[in-house]
Design a protein around this nucleic acid. Structure first.
Lengths: 219, 219
DNA sequence: AACCGGGTCCCCCGCGCGGGGGATCTCCGA
DNA sequence: TCGGAGATCCCCCGCGCGGGGGACCCGGTT
């Protein structure tokens, strides 16, 4: 089965170079060449190629904007490969957020561009190794648990329990019911928590707990 | 410059296969072969190879655990490539969190394994395309702003302002000072916010704001 | 035995808060 | 022109909350 490819780059030279690369493969067919992002979006909508290879820097609409427009269409089946000379982090994040199937540097060897097109066509994705490195670092910190503030160690286990319930916006009476103790007891615990953590209100306690990641809200 | 490589896999057959692959390259030298994770950690510490290629499934200590131990050492300079037959998401996340330089499937063509070692050695990283696809999806949702609840549209701009200040644990008086209005006005706004959002307390409002991502706490 | 920290319960007091009213002004659109 | 929405300010009332005390019990260390 032959794969149709659209090329978008504002340099005619580069387009013909890539076209020449694809022409060496008889299962890849370059069905369109465009010089700007708006044309890319239009041609993708018209021709519905298997893969669109977009330069990031393009007139009228850049590759990122074009990617977003193309992939925003739920009926779209075209995979997008982004090509760039410089790999700014912001580019990468925007590209991946938009759902691009690849983020490659123009320094890529021709054979690998070909393989990238095939990878994208079968639904997988591919990121340049130099970018992957930083992506992993970023991903790691996003997975890392937020640092627990040291003053939390001052709290007893019971006080931490109470803090969590306060953070869940429970009133003293609700906390008392939940812990099967009297509400006077809860008041004592809450007071201790506030003074130990240097917080004025239970309101501050709620904010504190959320900011310090004591509450699992994020996916 | 020649790169030293350590191989860790509990199948002798696979090790010799990989060794044969590396032997075809005169700039790659396989300096050790081990059959379990503990041995891998020990040999990496002793030989300090440029790259360690670890299978995930190994006796005594699996590849992920070994990766974590190796990369936990700040003096370590060895890059870790993980190899696996099955690409469970949990494996991937743990591997990337530990700081692995690669996550590859055993179905990888031999030439690409060689190139992966070189990529890792120069400090870049490489992830199998089938995994990359899912990684991007996961990364995209982690970047996506949390969905804004529809009832927030009921609030006027002033009320949203007030809500944000409440979420910052400001008292009514503090909000009044910040907005240069009377505290009676603030009370009116807060009341409206609470009733519109169906919240009992300002405490609930704080929790609501944080849970719905109205406060930028995460990096 | 004496001591102490953690957990539990109790009282009083002051105040911020939230709900219930109502009022004025301005701006914008029907 | 009139109405309504938004923003502002005002009063009263009740209650939950937080601080400041004190008290008891228990398990550990000294």
């Amino acid at each position: 089965m032959t794969l149709s490819v659209l090329l978008a780059d504002d340099h005619a030279m580069l387009r013909s170079g890539m076209r020449a690369i694809f022409d060496t493969q008889d299962d890849l067919r370059c069905v369109a060449e465009v010089a700007d992002g708006r044309a890319a979006v239009a041609e993708v909508a018209r021709l519905r190629p298997d893969v669109a290879v977009l330069d990031i820097r393009m007139p009228k609409l850049d590759g990122l904007g074009a990617t977003e427009m193309i992939l925003a269409d739920p009926a779209n089946r075209t995979k997008v490969l982004l090509l760039t000379t410089y790999d700014t982090d912001e580019y990468v994040y925007r590209a991946l957020k938009a759902g691009a199937s690849g983020f490659l540097l123009k320094s890529l060897p021709p054979e690998e561009l070909i393989s990238a097109v095939r990878v994208a066509a079968r639904g997988d994705a591919l990121i340049d190794p130099s970018v992957t490195q930083r992506l992993i670092a970023r991903f790691a910190v996003s997975l890392a648990p937020p640092p627990t503030p040291p003053e939390l160690a001052l709290l007893t286990t019971r006080e931490r329990e109470v803090l969590l319930l306060v953070a869940a916006a429970c009133s003293n009476a609700e906390i008392a019911a939940r812990l099967h103790v009297g509400d006077e007891t809860v008041k004592t615990h809450v007071s201790r928590v506030l003074s130990k953590l240097g917080l004025r209100d239970r309101v501050h306690a709620v904010a504190y707990a959320h900011i310090n990641g004591l509450v699992q809200n994020r996916r």
